[in-house]
Nucleic acid binder design. Structure first.
Length: 856
RNA sequence: GGGGGUAUGGUGAAAUUGGUAAACACGCUGGAUUCAAAAUCCAGUGCCGCAAGGCUUCUCGGUUCAAGUCCGAGUACCCCCACCA
């Protein structure tokens, strides 16, 4: 056979799989279905190690399920809209479409070289009108159902990308992609009504039992439900000229008698109203707006307020007046943009009250304090206790106080119980070119008019220029000028496009029926959905994963399908990391540019010393990247795949090391040798495995156990254990082969079993092995081997023997030995006699087949 | 500030969920092979000790016949959210 040439072998088998159409999926009623999906990539141009890890994980699951008899759907496509294409256009003059499609072509080749078992017939790119036309129709249906609407609102404006960002896309007050501090701007925008499902999305998290707890918790926190009360303070005196009442939200209505001020946000309508008449208010609001939203700014920001001089009436005590302030720490977009301040039981309110010399009324007394002399110094009491100074509520626990307060408010017609969510509606308008056009026409007289269905899709014009910042669609000479579909008067197209998370919110449905004339066929989608195993990065815990859950519900509501949750199982993989290197001038160096010597790391070219930094996520800026293509060209895809699965459990970060890759390659080469040797063996055919000697019997037993254990391990995503078992097994096969008189029929049988198990992780070399050992057809289509339960049981087992809980000896006993025999054998052991030191055994604990502990 | 997680040899890690700690691999050491090297193969490798033996899962305490695993307190690092009323 000759030298091991991974690339040649791998291409050969990739062609064989394609010719046999091994991975094409279709509905098969006689098999259980299994939908494995990895988060679809953005076509940046080249695959990176994160992709390699993600798709290898998915491919192992897909190939394993196929062998186990499932009807597997495992598709791949491209999340092809997005800003990098526009940036490329700006920098290189390439049209975004051209740039994107050529990136897709090269990344497809790279993925194919990995030997992934995709049904490529279902591939699509979201920038294709054949894809996005369906979501334009969905959007119109959403509008009809009240799930999409347009409103003017304060938005997060990214000054670098010149577009609006969703709340989910603002991280630490900065754009998630550009990193630029986000500005506040008021714009008219399209929103999807995700809050309508706030409760459902929250409560259904409970049932997502095959999702990581971490992600479930993040979604719960993101949705952020809090129960409390909404209540209204009526205007008093001259305030009546300005407003009737102010509505506030609180989670602690029980502390209502502790209210010493009311504060509204600087963006509250009342503040705007006052700003019209008073310069000091205008100045204060401007100061609030200037304040950054970054972490540091918030930490150090002082609680600032401005007394409006206005007063309101306490809702449950008509004689009590409460002053109204404007405060910088009150957020307009949470609750009603106004709060009542109860300094005694809220630290922030207390700081504010001390600063502006407002009264502090304690209304909750801690359990261990006397109400008569309980006072608040500079720490608010937020713990448990009983109500005081609260009239009829005195003596109640907080929980009962809240209930009593809500009842009292309802009776007084001043408020009611209310639940508010942190989650806000999803703004989907983006002022960009490379996205799905929003199918709306703005008409002076008819308003926002949907593009008639017959006119869909609204496609992007190709002749656009990127010579200046902003939205090229808006600048296009004629694209936006159309007649109103209703009144035929000149009107204007919506020039915003959808947030790209719109596309990724339903692509998993399109895969089920990628050639459909509709978005997807309802029946077919119902067959394949939900996705049984979804795999991707944890960075999408609240963005894509929440939007997709919402979309699935929304699409069900408008009749596209009948499903609540799109992803039954979720696995979030860790990052691929590498050590970062810096030369003496502070420049980052690529791993290929450094070498380890006896004196430490040096630059290969100059020999100058290099400082080796932390092991961190591979990133272009720190140059600590390794190109998958180079690895595949050098070692082959099987090596890259095996390494990815070897050491770290999938959810943990993985450090890419050259020595680890070489270890993986060494193993693949050993398998190649096994295959070579297998070629020479006399094939078993129908011949029975002859009477086995002891070594043969042991190998057969190990083979059955390995198959059993590898199956369990893949089910649990314990791929590193699974690789360990492959090592143990392979070592044993080599030992058996090297020892005297191996049975060729047994070897073939064992090698075929090994080939099936191996085919999940290293599918190419597994085909080589399968063929050499006389397997018929392709191992990619082979069934998972049967396990003989009789071979999983030992006749003799080794038990640990402890004296007073300390390990003293080992003891070999027949399996399932009962207490009397085990006791007898243990007590006879010299180590036990010695450590008992003449004392009688008071108690003997037997853990069957595992351990015996003599207590003396 | 709130919520969550992690901590095991020189390194990545494993431990059937309370029952023989360190499987498997990397690295390292020694040996075989080689003119030499690479590759390959064999042996060793938690720590202390010549040995018998003792010690060891971040630290301290507890429960238990038995604790890496359970409980309490603390330390370090990581992640998410954050003027959320």
């Amino acid at each position: 056979m000759g030298d091991f040439e991974p690339v040649r072998i791998e291409q050969k088998w990739q062609q064989a799989w394609e010719a046999a159409r091994c991975f094409a999926a279709e509905i098969k009623p006689d098999k259980p279905k299994y939908y494995v999906l990895e988060m679809l990539p953005y076509p940046s141009g080249r695959i990176h190690m994160g992709h390699v890890r993600n798709y290898t994980l998915g491919d192992v699951v897909a190939r394993y399920r196929r062998a186990k008899g499932f009807n597997v759907l495992h598709p791949m496509g491209w999340d092809a809209f997005g800003l990098p294409a526009e940036n490329a256009a700006l920098e290189r003059g390439a049209h975004p479409a051209e740039w994107t499609w050529s990136n897709i072509a090269s990344m497809r080749d790279q993925l194919k070289s990995m030997g992934l078992s995709y049904d490529w017939d279902r591939e699509f790119a979201t920038c294709d009108p054949d894809y996005y036309k369906h979501e334009q129709l969905m959007f119109l249906r959403f509008i009809e159902a009240g799930l999409a609407y347009r409103k003017e609102s304060w938005v997060n404006w990214d000054p670098v990308e010149h577009t609006v960002l969703a709340n989910e896309q603002v991280v630490d007050g900065k754009g998630w992609r550009s990193g630029a501090p986000v500005e506040r701007k008021k714009l008219s925008q399209w929103f999807l009504n995700i809050t309508r499902y706030g409760n459902e999305l929250l409560e259904a998290i409970e049932g997502l039992d095959r999702w990581p707890d971490r992600v479930r918790l993040m979604q719960q926190n993101w949705i952020g439900r809090s129960a409390g009360a909404q209540l209204r303070f009526k205007a008093h005196g001259k305030a009546k000229e300005l407003f009737e009442e102010i509505e506030i939200f609180t989670t602690r209505p029980d502390t209502l008698f502790g209210a010493s001020f009311l504060a509204v946000s600087a963006h509250h309508p009342l503040a705007a109203q006052l700003a019209g008449e008073r310069a000091e208010v205008r100045e204060f609001i401007a100061a609030c707006n200037a304040l950054g939203t970054s972490e540091a700014a918030i930490e150090t920001a002082e609680k600032l307020g401005l007394d409006t001089g206005l007063e309101v009436v306490h809702p449950l005590d008509p004689d009590r007046r409460v002053p109204v302030w404007i405060a910088n720490f009150v957020l307009m977009d949470y609750g009603s943009g106004a709060i009542f301040g109860c300094p005694a039981h809220d630290q922030r309110d207390l700081d504010f009250a001390r600063k502006y010399d407002l009264p502090v009324y304690p209304v909750v007394c801690p359990p261990d304090r006397d109400p008569a002399d309980f006072d608040i110094a500079d720490e608010a009491w937020t713990g448990p206790g009983r109500l005081i100074n609260s009239g009829a509520w005195d003596g109640l626990e907080i929980k009962d106080g809240i209930e009593a307060a809500i009842k009292a408010l309802e009776a007084a017609g001043a408020g009611a119980g209310q639940t508010v969510f942190r989650l806000r509606d999803w703004g989907v308008s983006r002022q960009r070119y490379w996205g799905c056009p929003i199918p709306i026409i703005h008409c002076e007289s008819c308003g926002n008019v949907p593009v008639p269905e017959a006119d869909l899709p609204v496609t992007l014009p190709e002749d656009v220029s990127f010579d200046q910042p902003g939205n090229p669609l808006d600048r296009h000479p004629d694209w936006k000028f159309v007649d109103c579909p209703k009144c035929s008067q000149p009107a204007r197209r919506e020039t915003d496009t959808f947030d790209t998370f719109f596309e990724s919110s339903w692509y998993f449905l399109r895969y089920t029926d990628a050639k459909s004339q509709q978005a997807f066929d309802r029946q077919t989608a119902q067959y394949w959905m939900p996705v049984d195993q979804y795999i991707g990065g944890v960075e999408h815990a609240v963005l894509h994963l929440l939007y997709s859950r919402f979309f699935t519900r929304a699409l069900s509501e408008i009749g596209y399908l009948d499903l609540q949750e799109p992803f039954a199982g979720l696995m979030t993989q860790g990052m691929v990391c590498h050590q970062a290197f810096k030369d003496s001038e502070g420049n980052w160096l690529f791993p290929e540019q450094v070498a380890k010597t006896a004196d430490g790391w040096v630059a290969t070219e100059s020999g100058a010393p290099v400082s080796a930094g932390r092991v961190e996520k591979m990133s272009k800026s720190k140059r600590n990247v390794v190109d998958p293509e180079r690895i595949i060209q050098t070692y082959g895809a099987d090596t890259a795949r095996l390494f990815m699965m070897s050491d770290s459990p999938p959810e943990r970060d993985l450090e890419w090391t050259e020595s680890g890759v070489e270890g993986a390659h060494r193993f693949i080469s050993r398998i190649f040798k096994l295959a070579e040797q297998g070629q020479a063996l006399e094939k078993g055919g129908d011949q029975q495995i002859s009477q086995l000697d002891e070594a043969g019997a042991a190998l057969l037993k190990l083979s059955h156990r390995s198959i059993d254990q590898i199956a369990t391990d893949i089910d649990r995503f314990a791929f590193n254990r699974c690789v360990a078992q492959l090592h143990i097994w392979t070592n044993a096969i080599q030992d058996y082969q090297a020892a005297a008189d191996p049975d060729p029929a047994l070897l073939c049988e064992v090698l075929r079993r090994l080939a099936v198990a191996l085919s999940c992780i290293a599918p190419h070399i597994a085909e080589e092995l399968w063929q050499a050992a006389g397997g018929s057809g392709l191992v990619a289509e082979a069934d998972w081997p049967e396990v003989d339960p009789a071979l999983l049981i030992d006749e003799q087992v080794e038990l640990a023997v402890q004296v007073n809980g300390k390990m003293r000896a080992r003891l070999s006993l027949p399996v399932d030995s009962a207490q009397p025999e085990a006791e007898q054998a243990a007590l006879a052991l010299p180590e036990v006699i010695r450590h008992l030191d003449g004392r009688p055994a008071k108690r003997i604990i037997l853990v069957p087949n595992r351990l015996i502990n003599v207590v003396g």
